[in-house]
């Protein structure tokens, strides 16, 4: 379980300008093995929140507990998948997937075996020795996903992981992510700009509002699980339509307030 209590985060202003408050009083409890999606206008602090949970950047006040332990820095328990993939362009697919294990000090044999297994799970068998530059965007993000899964994290943090992909690739990867998650449940915190994606993937949706970023609402998604087999039908269902309409109403009111 991840508990976020009263989180406040400021960024120092440039030069003499005022500091910017990126997060204000964020309270959020994320259940074990839950698929949580976070939706909100651009610049509302989604990435900042995720990086706080990852332990990559400090915050100002409040606390983040993972299984009752305070977050003090990055931990392999919480792996991250990046919007821009963040693959090492000079390393092969295999080495990229294995890097988390390498950092952890695992010897070459076992870590490559593990990496191969995950490469297969994300459907990239045969591409182990390619460089990232030789792969399509969708394939690159599969590598990113495999790399995160390779360290067997209990929490998967995903920052708009499919944002840079085209519609069809995105749909394929959504299905695949759901399939993997259904097979090996883990806590997923998934940031997205897409209302549909938030609904299709999430158990709950956290709506954030901007300036400063705070939790505006938390919405339960009433769609049944497992979903990986019937994403398309779900997308046509009346529940889906009503919940996206609701989300859009909320988001639009925020945009109006902002401008």
């Amino acid at each position: 379980m991840i508990e976020i209590k009263g989180l406040n985060k400021y960024f120092p202003g440039r030069g003499r300008s005022e500091p910017v408050q990126a997060l204000r009083d964020v309270d959020l409890t994320i259940r074990d093995n839950e698929f949580l999606t976070i939706l909100g206008p651009s610049g509302c602090g989604k990435t900042t929140l995720l990086r706080n949970i990852a332990g990559l950047v400090p915050w100002d006040t409040g606390e983040i507990l993972v299984d009752s332990q305070p977050v003090r820095g990055p931990s392999p328990e919480r792996a991250m998948v990046f919007q821009n993939f963040a693959l090492l362009p000079w390393s092969t697919v295999l080495a990229n997937v294995a890097i988390g294990l390498e950092i952890r000090g695992e010897p070459r044999g076992p870590r490559e075996a593990k990496a191969r297994e995950l490469i297969e799970r994300v459907g990239l068998s045969g591409f182990e020795d390619r460089l990232p530059g030789e792969l399509s965007g969708g394939m690159q993000q599969r590598v990113g996903l495999a790399r995160a899964l390779a360290v067997d994290p209990s929490v998967l943090l995903m920052d708009e992981p499919f944002g840079a992909l085209d519609e069809q690739t995105r749909r394929l990867l959504q299905e695949e992510l759901l399939r993997i998650w259904e097979q090996t449940p883990k806590t997923v915190v998934f940031i997205t700009h897409s209302m549909e994606e938030a609904v299709l993937l999430g158990d709950r949706i956290v709506l954030m509002s901007a300036r400063p970023g705070q939790v505006d609402d938390i919405i339960e998604v009433p769609l049944a699980r497992p979903r990986s087999q019937h994403i398309n039908e779900l997308g046509e269902s009346p529940e889906f339509a009503s919940i996206t309409t609701h989300l859009w109403t909320r988001l639009r009111s925020m945009q109006v307030l902002n401008t």
Partner: peptide, 20 residues
């Protein structure tokens, strides 16, 4: 982003310098 990726997996300064 690459440096952050490595840090995220717990890499230390030397690893980041040498490998990233």
């Amino acid at each position: 982003s690459l440096v952050e990726m490595a840090r995220c997996y717990g890499a230390g300064d030397r690893f980041v310098l040498r490998r990233v």
